[in-house]
């Protein structure tokens, strides 16, 4: 078993780092007790979920099996966790309602997308990545981040953004999803079992930014202090 993993790691080092770097912010959240903030609790859940999915995908990839099913299934969950974080950051009730509606709507949309992309669902070997859902997820998350930035500027309550944990989290998300937004739909066509068009560096950009995103999360969580949170 182990040599198989090792061989995969050597073949795809950046992807492997991206899988296991998730542990860093995850441990930091627990260590800094950031989970007392509901937003960070959701981030913790997101990271745990992401780690599980990534490890499963890592395992199946090492075993040379098609793992795109997990990739597809994870999309609505990622969106729910991440947009849930914003749920606690905004105060407007109308906005919260829209957010909940968008979670449900997005779930339905993803299921539809999976079904549409895979006419034969039971044929797991030829399972394909979704065409729209990942991009839509990116657009929605970026929109949320920008909204939050607008709120920050408008309310003017944070004296130093560099020590404000959630700003780092938002920056990480913004960068990661920006890097992914154009590549996601291409996956639908390229990441198939028989016809693997090599995207080369374009393929690694999102992975690199996934790592960067985890690092930015870590910086943000590092700045978290329960005392400060209590003051808010």
């Amino acid at each position: 078993m182990f040599p198989v993993y090792l061989a995969y790691c050597i073949k795809n080092p950046v992807g492997c780092i991206a899988v296991f770097i998730t542990l860093l912010p995850l441990i930091l959240i627990i260590y800094r007790k950031a989970y007392i903030d509901p937003s960070f609790k959701l981030l913790l859940l997101y990271l745990v979920f992401k780690l599980i999915i990534d490890v499963i995908m890592f395992h199946t990839a090492a075993m040379h099996q098609n793992n795109l099913l997990y990739f597809n299934i994870a999309i609505p969950f990622y969106y729910s966790f991440l947009s849930g974080m914003f749920y606690f950051k905004f105060s407007s009730v109308a906005f919260k309602r829209i957010l909940i509606a968008s979670m449900i709507g997005f779930l339905v949309f993803t299921v539809w997308d999976i079904l549409k992309s895979n006419a034969q669902l039971h044929d797991l070997h030829n399972h394909r990545a979704v065409l729209f859902a990942k991009t839509v997820e990116g657009v929605l998350i970026i929109a949320l981040v920008l909204l939050f930035f607008y709120e920050i500027i408008k309310s003017l309550q944070i004296p130093n953004l560099l020590t404000f944990p959630f700003f780092w989290v938002c920056s990480g998300l913004l960068l990661y999803y920006s890097s992914f937004i154009f590549i996601a739909p291409v996956f639908h066509y390229t990441a198939t079992w028989n016809n693997s068009v090599d995207l080369g560096i374009a393929n690694t950009i999102p992975t690199v930014f996934e790592i960067l995103c985890a690092l930015l999360f870590s910086i943000g969580i590092y700045h978290f202090s329960p005392a400060n949170y209590a003051k808010q």
Partner: peptide
């Protein structure tokens, strides 16, 4: 295709960077 993707992604990333810097600066 590779190049097109690369350029598009980089443009998007640049925008994201600008956005973050702008927020920081303006704030």
């Amino acid at each position: 295709l590779k190049w097109a993707l690369l350029v598009a992604s980089l443009a998007m990333l640049t925008m994201a960077f600008c956005m973050i810097s702008f927020v920081m600066y303006y704030q």
